[in-house]
Every structure is written in C-alpha cells, then in structure tokens.
C-alpha cells in the first residue's frame, strides 16, 4: 500500500535487443542479392591481395613461346600477344580496380563530408559560397577535368585516384549538407545546444554520425562508377601506365586483337561488369537496410 510514493515499477522489455546498426545488419542479411554482391567483393579483394599465391606468373612475365593461347591447363584464361598470363593480369588488375574504387572514395569523403557538414551546420553566407563552388564543380565536365589534371600533374596511379576523387566529391558534399540541414532542426540537436555544446561538438557528435547511413549508400554506389571511370581512362590511354595491369587497359589492348583472341576482351570486361554489379547490389541492399523508415 506504500506503492504510490515509490518510483514507477518498470516492465521488463522481453523483445530481443537491437542497436540501429544491428538492425540494419539483420535487414541486410535477409537481402540475398546484397549478400551475393558483398561476397563477390570479398572474393575479388582476397584474390587481389593473395594473387601471388593463386598464380605462379607475374603480371609482366612474358613467355614469347606461348603467345595468344586459348585457355590451357598452364594458363587457365590463356595468354595475350606478349605471352603474359591473362589470369595473372586480371588478378593484379583487380588490385588497381579495387584501389581506385576505395582510395577515390576516401578522397571523396575527406573533401565532401567536411565541406558539406560545415556548409549545412553553419549555414548563411558561408553555406551559400561553398554551395556555389560545388555547383561550379558539378557543372564542369568530369572527363575533361580528369584529362586536365592528368596533363598537369602527370601519370602516377595516385594522380588517378586524385583526379577521379576530385570530380566525385560534390555529390557527397551536397548529400551531407542536405542531411545535416534536415537534422539541424531536430530536437536532440537543440538539446545538445541547451546543454552548452559548441557548434563543433554538435556537428561531430550528432550531425555527422546521424548522416552516415545515406552517405555510406552513396559511397557504395560511387565505387563502381570510379572503377568504370578508371577503366574508361585506361581505355582512352590516360589511365595507369603499362605494364601495370588494369581491367580498362586490358580491354583496350585486347580490343585491337578481338578477332584473333576474343578472350582478351571478354574476361576483363566480364570482371568489370561483375564487380560493378556486385557493388550496385550491395549498395541497393544497404540503402534498404539503412533506411530508418523501414524500422519496425
């Protein structure tokens, strides 16, 4: 009978516990295509890392006695016009493609995320200026910019990352800004300000972490675009320098010999296609998994 004065008894929650990321993972796991895509990416990454264990050949090893072979036991995917093993070149080429995919996105995040977050959080004139700059970058033709950058800064592989990254960050900047602006009006941001949190604190602790979901999705979709951009650059001859293999360069080289040995185009083209699809499926799955509206 002394019940009334005691704090409210609290019913135990009997449902299984979920964190937000845990929830997203559960949803992602149920998406077969996304899991297939993720598996393909992991297999390709492992193959790229451990390529010396998979094939005895180096990517530049020439065997002039076996030129333009079809698939054989010694060369499962055949050889090219210089007697180089196609499988070995594909595996080492995967390194280039994945590196392009990952490093460009790192550059994209490093530039786009802070600029977008600052523009969104601070607002006003600074926002206006930053966003007009983004508009200009957005309007500039991508390939032209990349060619310019390559012409000015020369041709190391890092310059390719930089070039592709420099044209791709605007999307992330815009997205981050939009996310931050929509979060800024939410009560938990006001709460942090009422506690005396500085603008920097609010941005790093609340605004950015809560914007990450859609950003991760867009980054995942960006990876195949970067891979394709590198392939396209290599195809027009301003990509990685020979003999470093890249799938795009392999397609270009094989293209001249397509009637002699179509495998030289087929395998790298298939690889590009499969990896791009894998990232797209994964991105699709992530978008569904991270969408808070689907929470139940």
């Amino acid at each position: 009978m002394t019940e009334a004065a005691a704090p409210a008894p609290v019913a135990t929650v009997t449902r299984p516990r979920h964190t937000l990321w845990g929830d997203a993972w559960t949803r992602l796991r149920r998406n077969r295509l996304a899991i297939a895509g993720g598996s393909v990416i992991i297999v390709v990454a492992l193959a790229a890392i451990f390529s010396p264990l998979i094939t005895p050949y180096g990517f530049a090893d020439q065997d002039l006695n076996s030129i333009m072979l079809g698939p054989t036991l010694a060369h499962p995917l055949g050889t090219d016009e210089l007697g180089r093993d196609v499988l070995a070149r594909l595996l080492y080429g995967a390194r280039t493609s994945l590196a392009v995919g990952v490093f460009t996105q790192i550059i994209v995040v490093l530039i786009g995320l802070p600029l977008g977050a600052i523009a969104g959080a601070v607002g006003g004139r600074l926002d206006n200026m930053l966003m007009r700059f983004v508009d200009v970058m957005y309007a500039f033709p991508d390939i032209l910019l990349i060619i310019l950058l390559r012409a000015v800064f020369g041709g190391s592989i890092f310059m390719i990352f930089l070039a592709i990254g420099l044209v791709a960050w605007v999307n992330i900047a815009r997205l981050t800004r939009g996310q931050v602006m929509s979060l800024k009006g939410r009560d938990f941001i006001t709460a942090a300000r009422v506690m005396g949190g500085s603008q920097r604190y609010v941005m790093l602790r609340h605004l950015v972490p809560n914007s990450l979901g859609p950003i991760i999705v867009v980054l995942t979709f960006n990876v195949p675009r970067a891979i394709f951009a590198e392939a396209a650059l290599s195809y027009i001859g301003i990509g990685v320098r020979p003999p470093t293999p890249s799938w795009g360069a392999m397609i270009r080289d094989g293209y001249d010999l397509i009637f002699a040995n179509s495998n030289l185009v087929l395998f790298p083209a298939l690889s590009v296609g499969v990896l791009m699809l894998a990232f797209t499926f994964l991105g699709d799955g992530l978008r569904d998994a991270l969408d808070p509206r689907l929470r139940r």
């Binding site: 019940e3 009334a4 409210a8 008894p9 609290v10 019913a11 929650v13 009997t14 449902r15």
Partner: peptide, 21 residues
C-alpha cells in the same frame, strides 16, 4: 493518481488479464 507501469508488449501478453501487472 497515475496508472503505474507501462502498457504491455502485445507480442508477449501475460496469461489471463493483460492489465494485471
């Protein structure tokens, strides 16, 4: 004079009356 506690979880209702707690 509030009703103490929380409404029950509809997934796992107690046996008998749902208001008993």
């Amino acid at each position: 004079a509030p009703i103490e506690g929380q409404p029950p979880d509809l997934v796992s209702l107690p046996r008998g009356c749902a208001f008993q707690a």
